[in-house]
C-alpha cells in the first residue's frame, strides 16, 4: 500500500496506515499530535473536531483515505501563539475546567466565527450542541464565543488626536 499523504497545519506527512483508520487515531497515535481528543468515537461529543479545508469535522468519523489532498487544521495549528480570538476569549472568560473537551469547542468556534462573525445565541446552540462538556462549562462557553466575536470584529478606526482633544 502506498503511504497516504496528509497536510496537517501546513506540513505534509506521509503515513503508512490502514486507509480506513479514522483521522483521529492517525493524528494522535501516528503523528503524536495529541491536542485532538478522543471522547466517544461515534461523532457524538465533538472532542475530536478538526478543520478540513476550513470546515469543522469529526476526526473520529473520518477515514484517513478520504482526507488526502485536503487541508487539515488541528488545535495545534489554530494559531502559533494562542492568539486566535477564541483562544484569547477562552482565557479571558476562564472557560476550561478539566479542558479535555476544549480543543473541539475551540475548533468549532473558530469555524463558527468565520461563518457568522456575530453569532446569536441560536447560532451558538446550533454549532456547539454537537459537543459535550461534562464539566459543564456551557455558560462560559457562550460568553466566550461572544467575547471572541467582539475581539475578532474589525475595530473602529482610532480617533485622531485632535478629535480626542475636542471631546474633552
Amino acid at each position: 500500500m502506498p503511504p497516504i499523504t496528509l497536510n496537517v497545519n501546513g506540513k505534509a506527512h506521509a503515513v503508512d496506515v490502514d486507509p480506513q483508520t479514522p483521522l483521529l487515531w492517525v493524528l494522535r497515535d501516528t503523528l503524536n499530535m495529541t491536542g485532538t481528543k478522543y471522547g466517544c468515537g461515534i461523532a457524538q461529543c465533538g472532542a475530536c473536531t478538526v478543520h478540513l479545508d476550513g470546515e469543522a469535522t469529526r476526526a473520529c468519523a473520518t477515514a484517513v483515505e478520504d482526507v488526502q489532498g485536503r487541508k487539515i487544521t488541528t488545535i495545534e495549528g489554530l494559531s502559533a501563539d494562542r492568539s486566535h480570538p477564541a483562544q484569547l476569549a477562552w482565557i479571558a472568560e476562564q472557560v476550561p475546567q478539566c479542558g479535555y473537551c476544549q480543543s473541539g469547542m475551540l475548533m468549532t468556534t473558530a469555524e463558527l466565527l468565520k461563518r457568522k462573525p456575530k453569532p446569536t445565541d441560536a447560532d451558538i446552540d446550533e454549532a456547539i450542541s454537537g459537543h459535550i462538556c461534562r464539566c459543564g462549562t456551557y455558560p462560559r462557553l457562550r460568553k466566550a464565543i461572544k467575547t471572541a466575536a467582539a475581539m475578532a470584529a474589525p475595530r473602529p478606526a482610532a480617533p485622531k488626536p485632535a478629535a480626542k482633544g475636542a471631546a474633552r
Partner: peptide, 21 residues
C-alpha cells in the same frame, strides 16, 4: 486570579493521561 492550568488547555499542549507518549 486566572487559573494557571488554562493556557495549556486552549492550544492542545496540556498533557492528559491519554496524551502521554
Amino acid at each position: 486570579i486566572p487559573r494557571a492550568d488554562i493556557p495549556g488547555k486552549v492550544d492542545g499542549s496540556g498533557v492528559f493521561g491519554m496524551d502521554v507518549r
